[in-house]
Amino acid sequence: MFPKCEDGGKLILRLVLGLLILFHGVWKLQHGVGFIGDMLVKHGLPGALGYLVYIGEVVAPLMIVLGILGRFGALIIVINMVVAVALVHTGQLFTANPKTGGYALELDFMYLFGALSLLASGMGRFVIGGSRLN
């Protein structure tokens, strides 16, 4: 019915995943990451680690969108999402959203598994950074 275009599908996934996570990063650039530092301190970690979110939500999404070391960017997003779930959402791991009935962490898991998918499959041929590390 439709011609197969794996590279086009990877491009769509890259753009959607990267741009949606980038919105979170831009918000943090505008409002700061102090609240993340506070959460880290509550878990016995240095608050300064909160600044790493800029790598996970600004640099890594740009790497994926542009296809510059995209698989490395996907790995960074995977780590970022695992840390976010561990810090903020562990109480919701086995719960449903009371308003919609969907999984409480569906957006977090879409980001996590979208990044895992790109990590496993690569960025496709529509990249700026060449295909060697994508």
Rank of each mutant, 00 (worst) to 15 (best):
G70S: 07
Q92C: 13
A74P: 01
A104T: 14
L62E: 01
K99L: 09
V58M: 04
G91C: 03
E57C: 15
L52A: 06
I76M: 10
G102P: 08
T90F: 04
L87D: 05
Y103H: 14
V65D: 00
I64R: 09
L93E: 07
V53R: 11
A96H: 15
A104E: 15
K99T: 05
V83G: 12
G102L: 11
I64C: 12
R71L: 02
V85D: 11
F94K: 13
A74Q: 04
I68W: 03
N97Q: 14
V82R: 04
P98V: 09
V65M: 10
G70W: 00
V65W: 07
G102E: 14
A74I: 05
L52D: 05
Y103A: 12
M81E: 11
P61M: 13
V85C: 05
A74M: 03
Y103I: 09
G56V: 07
A60Y: 09
V85T: 09
G73F: 02
M81Q: 10
E57D: 10
A104D: 14
F72H: 06
K99Y: 04
G91V: 01
V58C: 11
L87H: 04
A104W: 08
Y103E: 08
V88E: 13
T100A: 06
L75P: 00
L69A: 15
L69F: 14
Q92W: 13
G102K: 11
M63L: 06
P98N: 08
I77H: 10
T90D: 02
M81Y: 09
G91P: 02
I77V: 15
G67N: 04
T95G: 12
M63H: 02
V88P: 05
A104R: 10
F72C: 07
V83K: 14
G56S: 12
V78A: 06
E57P: 12
V78E: 12
F94W: 15
L66C: 03
L75T: 07
T95F: 12
G91E: 03
Y103Q: 14
N97W: 07
T90L: 10
A84K: 04
L62W: 07
I64M: 06
F72Y: 10
T90K: 08
H89C: 02
V88C: 07
I76L: 13
I76W: 01
V53W: 15
V88I: 11
A60R: 09
A84I: 00
G101L: 00
R71V: 05
L62T: 03
V88L: 14
A60W: 09
G56H: 08
E57N: 11
I77C: 11
A84N: 01
V59Y: 13
V85I: 15
L75M: 06
K99W: 05
L52V: 01
M63A: 06
L66T: 00
I76V: 05
F94H: 14
N80I: 06
V58F: 03
L66Q: 00
I55Y: 08
V82D: 08
F94C: 13
P61H: 10
